[in-house]
């Protein structure tokens, strides 16, 4: 059975890009419009990984990661941040929140898949 990945980004275009790249690599994909939408969906759908943006309305990426890490059922899900923020402090903030990997936009689909495979042990 294909592993399921949740893509969280407020930009529909970016969500589509990531979803397309992941589907092409054989993963099942669901998407979240922002952190809050993602958390809501996590309670009804089991996922193997979360890929999230940082700057989003309603709930940002940092809060999403902190929320996920606090929940017993989700705390071990690997999380990748894909953000436009390129400062060292942003990366540090991402790791402090509990992300496993921090990628800077734009991300080559090939590079994204390589990192996803690595984190999922595929």
């Amino acid at each position: 059975m294909a592993k399921k990945i949740m893509v969280v980004d407020d930009s529909e275009m970016i969500r589509n890009f990531h979803c397309y790249a992941l589907k092409s690599a054989g993963y099942e994909v669901i998407s979240g419009l922002n952190g809050a939408d993602a958390v809501e969906k996590l309670f009804t759908t089991r996922v193997d990984m979360i890929i999230t943006d940082i700057n989003m309305p309603v709930m940002d990426g940092y809060t999403l990661i902190e929320t996920v890490r606090k929940e017993e059922d989700f705390k071990d899900i690997p999380i990748i941040i894909i953000s436009t923020e390129d400062e060292a402090q942003d990366k540090q903030k991402g790791f402090d929140a509990g992300a496993n990997l921090y990628l800077i936009k734009p991300v080559e689909p090939k590079k994204l898949i390589e990192n996803v495979n690595m984190l999922l042990g595929d």
Binding site: S11, I14, F17, T84
Partner: peptide, 23 residues
């Protein structure tokens, strides 16, 4: 074809960066 699409996907992500800059 897939490689070319990947390149386009890569380039179009700059739109999101531009949006961020405008914000």
């Amino acid at each position: 074809v897939k490689e070319d699409i990947d390149k386009v996907a890569y380039s179009l992500q700059y739109q999101d960066i531009t949006r961020q800059q405008i914000e």
